[in-house]
Amino acid sequence: MLETRNLTKTFGALTAVNSVDLTIEREGIHSIIGPNGAGKSTLFHLLTGYHQPTEGTIRFEGENIEGKSPRTIVDKGISRSFQISDLFDGLTVEENVRIATQSLDENRNSVWKRSDSIDSTRKAETLMEDLDLTEFADTRADALSHGDRRKLEVGLAIAVEPDLMLLDEPTAGMGNEGSAKMVQTIRRIADERDIKLVLIEHDLEMVMEISDRITVLNRGAILKEGDPETIQADEDVQEAYIGTGEGE
């Protein structure tokens, strides 16, 4: 589904992503883990056009997308969420979701229709129900609890109906119970809507439980790749984590 070859990003003297050959298959949940500064978020930035690669190629469904703008890449079917929630704070939850679902509406640029009367409004309502956010429809995004903000963050990525969704630590800063529930919700919705999930996660226990395939990044390069059992048993991976502090 997605394939990178020799993908490299340098910032001055620092090589944040170093010659990464990553293959993401259609089936299953794929997680990317690694210690802080391993280059996980930079990798996402490259895949979504937020940063331009210094070298290398990215192919999505057989088409080269490196060097394309974020907007073009979303159109091709890759959406993402951010590690630090990037919401439309001054707008209501309903407007947040609606601006996202509206992006696919044929009337998205209309200047004369009412924005709450076009077709995509229905989709927004459905998605809010799926995310259990309906009761906050009229609440401003900046007045939500942290957990609900994370949910809305992922909701925006879902709303643009991607084939592939890259979630950057969707449960960051949430308690264990909240995280587990959140992951359940995301999996359910992704299944229903046939969205391939790629996650960056810190919670190793959860990663092992939900992932079908895991890529371990360390210092910008791929250290190991395999199913959870292989990764868990790998000594190099343990070394990489212990070397920089467990799970951090």
Partner: peptide, 26 residues
């Protein structure tokens, strides 16, 4: 009329976070 339209909602989204608006494909 413009501010109540889908285009107007886009504008307000840009005000709140232009980056995110781009990542929604606008």
């Amino acid at each position: 009329r413009i501010m109540d339209s889908p285009f107007g909602l886009q504008l307000q989204a840009i005000r709140e976070s232009e980056r995110r608006t781009t990542f929604l494909g606008y």
